[in-house]
Each structure stands twice: as C-alpha cells, then as structure tokens.
Design a protein around this nucleic acid. Structure first.
Length: 505
RNA sequence: GCCCCCAUCGUCUAGAGGACUAGGACACAGGCCUUUCAAGCCUGCGACAGGGGUUCGAAUCCCCUUGGGGGCACCA
C-alpha cells in the first residue's frame, strides 16, 4: 500500500474561511506530495447544504494560493479524477450506498427525527454512557420494510457496524489503534435528501481518486474505524492514515477557537488566513511558521525555505502531541522575512498597506516620492507590513505638525526655553544648507550640538519630536532628508511656537 | 458519562536505552552598540507531570495515576 503513487488531498468544506489549522493540514499534505513526486489534490466537500457559505470557496482557493500551496488537481485546474466537487458526484455515492445495502453492509432506516430525538432524550435521562442510534431499523422484517417503501417513507442509509469484535488500523503517526465495535454507531451514510455524509463521500472519493495517504486533523480519529469498516465492506484497499495533532489556543489551554482570540492585554490573535494576510504577514513567513507547528526541519533550524521543508518532510516525523499556536514566534519570523526582502520588493508589498493605513488609494501612494526612500529606514523596525503606516505618517503630512503635548518637545535635562533655542538654532543652520541631504543634515546638526554644548541625544531628541511628531521614529537625518527642507523648516518653526508658552513660565 | 489520542523549559521543538551536567528557537531579564526605537551581538533565566516497574543503565520501553485534547449528529 505504500508503493502506490503518492496522491494526497486537502478536502475542506465550503462552510467557512480558511482556518489556520486547515492551512497547516493543507501545507503538510502539499509538502508530502512535493517531496514524493506525488499529486496534491483539492477536493471540495460541499455536501452540507445548510452550512454552505457562498464566498468561502474563493477564500479557500485564494489563500491556499497565497501560501503557495497550488493544487495539481481540483477546482479551476481540473484533472483526470474529477469532478472535484462532491455536489457533482452524488450519483456515485447513491450507487455505492445502494450497493452496500444490497450486500448487507448497510440498511435503510426510516426513523423520524422525532423518534431519534426521543431516543436521545431517553438515553440522556438514563445517563446512558453510550448514547446513539438504537439500531431500531436494522432488524426490520422484510414486510415492515415493504410497508415503509410502499408508504414512501423517507429514509437514510446506515452502516451496519459488526456487533462484535473490533477494528484495528494503523496510523502513520501514532501506530496501531483499536476500537471495539461495541463502541461504534450505525452511522448515517446517505441522508434522507439523498446527499451523502462525510463518511461515505470521503471513502468513495478517496478510493476513486486513488488517494494514497490521508492526512487530516486529529478530530477524525474517532470516526476512522467507520472509514476502515467501509473500505472492508467495499473490498477496497484503504490508504495510509495519518491524523495530525490539532492546534491549541495560543495560551496552551483549550482548543483553537474558530473565531479570533483576544488576549487579556488586548492583542488580537487571528485564526483565519485572510486575517493574517490583511494584517501584513508575509506568505513566506506564514508558510515557514505553519511548517514548524507539529513538525520541525531538524530541531534547530527555525528559518527555512519551502525547498528545504519539502526535502526533509516525513510523516513519521510529525509530533503527535497537540500544540499551542506560538503566535509570538510568527511575529518574530515575519520580521525576519521582512528584513530578508530587498528594498524594491518590500516597497511593492508596502504600498497597499501604507496607503490603506493612511487613507489613500494605492495609486496615490505609488505617486508619492516619500515611501520608497523610507523603506530601508523602517525595514528592521517593522514586524508586519501594517506597522509601517504609523511609523511613516509624518512623511505624508503637508507642512507643519500639531503638537498635542508640547512638553514632548522639551529635551532631556533641558528647559523649555533651551529647547526652543535649540530648535531656532537648528532652523537657522538648516535653512541655508547648500545640499539638503542626509550627510549634510547630520554634519550640520552634530556640529550644532557641539557648538551649543548639548549632547547629541539632547539636540536630536528635540529635533526628532519637532520634525516627526514622535519620540520614536525612523533614523532622524534620513527622515529629514526625505521630508525636504521646506517641511522640515516649517515644523522646526511650529515647534518653537508650541514651546513658547512653556518657555515663558 | 463512555471511547480514542497525547504528555520535554511559559510557548514551539530536538531527543527513537548509554554521546543528556537534556540541545535549538520565541518570549523574558541583563549587557554591548547607539541620535530615539528597532536590528545585531553576548550572557542569563528556564523542562523530562507524579508513582511504580523492566534494565548494568531510562526523557527514551511497560503499567497506574494525574493533566490536556478530540469524538460520541440525517456537520464536516
């Protein structure tokens, strides 16, 4: 069974946007396929018509591609095993469900929702340790069945789980796992509307699509024996199973929710890939990060390329223990990847984020001269693309600035009057500089500090707040050079005026 | 409640009986560099859940306990 060509699938249902856990599952499947000369298949399990979310399919595909996880077969690319939407394969499930009934491996169940509910309530009240369908219809007589059929009663098809014995299957990550049949339920295979449930659809498709390895989330482990029983009933060779550890909430306590998580300190940890994307995480960082949850390249290399991951990936190397999402590590990694980008590339990626952050259109931003030269200034100061806008907003304000808190303009161990004098002196010194570039500005301000008997940090601090409006900013001289003489002088002057009332007192 | 899975620093992990005074990374703390903040470099803090076995020897194997997680739908 292991010498089959490698064909793996990611099979999401279009009931929600791509979750970070789903992305990790897709990533592992992709890595395995790429490393084994295999095929990575995207199959859409759209058999739940009630929970269908219309734009989720686009989100799934868009974000999978964003992460670089292009599929070899599936929606929009086709393939020899299609269709890849379960909603277009209904006839197959019906055929095989009926086949199972004929073979005696499944049976028709005419129980109403009401009876099922009543049974459930009764079991609950009794404290039944194993609540579930009581197999009422499994023992219907031929006559009773005929009556139901004649009456046109709606029915579902249920798997007739063997009453005794047990099923053991091998999990490539966890080893042999055994379930007693007495613990299993006669699961519904075909719903009364004629649509299949996951159990049937997945097995039929995995077999027909010649899937060699099933790598899916841990939550499927409990129902895996049902799948194995189905393979046996069909007489089909089951694929290799590998149940991936689930991802826990970043606190390490409890599972990862389906909605974003807000920490006590106010930090928001997204769970949807689209949110990470929107918040300025790089796909290459995301890829690297996800590959490191539940698996590691070699135990010590934290930053690696997809090629390295492909070469080293191995199912047996997956850690079976559930893992908390190490969100802080992603933030760090994203910074690493941002610093690795060359300036032109970072600029390209920054444009939409800075534009959005400052309320401009991308076209407007692209037309501004300030952003490109500022890129090397902020490169090692941002951890996400979204952090650039607040850092650079001072470059996109015309003319002077407002100083809501003028005391910020007072330098370290200086009075307001001294600070105002320093600003005036800086203004004079910079006003008639022949070349207003970084080197000239720095040279000028350094000598000015010396001439005024100020420590460079004192003078630069005052000028920094005056020019950028903040105590923390990108490097001063480069920032001033990008700002230009006119705006710099205007701000130096405005800052003096803001300081004036304080200087008097 | 029942079934199944899991268990190394706060977190992500390396470790598949001796190479472990348990390695790497993030975070945190301190230092260096320095025009702020970063980045970078150095140092530090910090774990084999507990108890029984097996063995000359256990983080590694077995059992129990505890803890965490998943499942028990005409959802996937």
């Amino acid at each position: 069974m292991t010498d089959r060509p490698v064909r793996v699938r990611f099979a999401p249902s279009p009931t929600g946007y791509l979750h970070i856990g789903g992305a990790r599952t897709a990533l592992f499947n992709w890595l395995f396929a790429r490393g084994r000369n295999g095929r990575f298949i995207l199959r859409i399990e759209d058999t739940d018509r009630k929970r269908f979310v219309p734009d989720s399919l686009d989100d799934l595909m868009s974000n999978l591609r964003w992460l670089g996880l292009q599929w070899d077969e599936g929606p929009e690319v086709g393939g020899p095993y299609g269709p890849y939407f379960q909603s277009q394969r209904l006839h197959l499930y019906r055929h095989w469900a009926h086949w199972l009934v004929e073979q005696g491996h499944a049976y028709r169940c005419y129980c109403s929702e009401e009876r099922l509910e009543a049974v459930r309530q009764e079991q609950l009240a009794r404290g039944d340790p194993q609540p579930g369908y009581d197999r009422f219809c499994r023992t219907l007589t031929a006559q009773q069945r005929a009556q139901h059929e004649a009456a046109g009663d709606p029915c579902v098809v249920r798997l007739a789980v063997p009453l005794e014995g047990s099923t053991t299957f091998h999990d490539a990550i966890r080893g042999d796992i055994t379930f007693e049949h007495s613990q299993l339920k006669d699961a519904v295979l075909l719903k009364s509307d004629g649509w299949p449930t996951y159990h049937l659809a997945a097995v039929v498709d995995d077999h027909l699509m010649e899937i060699s390895h099933i790598m899916r989330a841990d939550e499927w482990l409990s129902s895996a024996p049902l799948g194995v029983l189905l393979y046996q009933a069909f007489g089909w060779e089951p694929p290799v199973f590998a149940h991936l550890p689930i991802i826990l909430s970043p606190t390490g306590k409890g599972k990862m929710s389906k909605r974003e998580l807000v920490n006590p300190d106010g930090t928001v940890i997204p769970v949807l890939v689209r949110d990470y994307r929107a918040r300025g995480y790089l796909p290459e960082a995301m890829f690297n990060f996800l590959a490191n949850v539940g698996w590691s390249l070699d135990g010590s290399t934290e930053v690696f390329t997809p090629e390295q991951a492909i070469a080293a990936f191995d199912i047996a190397g997956i850690n079976p223990a559930p893992a908390a999402l190490p969100f802080e590590k992603l933030v760090w990694l994203n910074g690493v990847y941002i610093r690795q980008l060359d300036d032109d590339e970072l600029y390209r990626r920054l444009v939409p984020f800075v534009a959005q952050g400052l309320g401009m259109s991308e076209a407007e931003m692209a037309a501004r001269p300030e952003l490109r030269p500022a890129v090397p200034l902020i490169k090692e100061r941002i951890k996400t693309l979204a952090e650039a806008a607040p850092l650079l907003s001072f470059l996109f304000v015309d003319g002077a600035l407002d100083y809501p808190d003028p005391t910020e303009l007072i330098g370290d161990k200086m009075t307001a009057a001294q600070s105002a004098q320093a600003l005036a002196a800086a203004h004079r010194a910079l006003a008639d500089l022949p070349d207003f570039d970084q080197a000239a500005v720095e040279e000028t301000l350094r000598s000015l500090a010396e001439a005024m008997g100020l420590k460079s940090r004192q003078l630069f601090g005052v000028v920094r707040v005056a020019v950028t409006g903040a105590k923390v900013s990108p490097p001063l001289f480069e920032s001033i050079a990008i700002l230009g003489r006119e705006r710099t002088l205007a701000r130096l002057q405005a800052a003096q005026q803001a300081l004036a009332p304080l200087a008097v007192a």
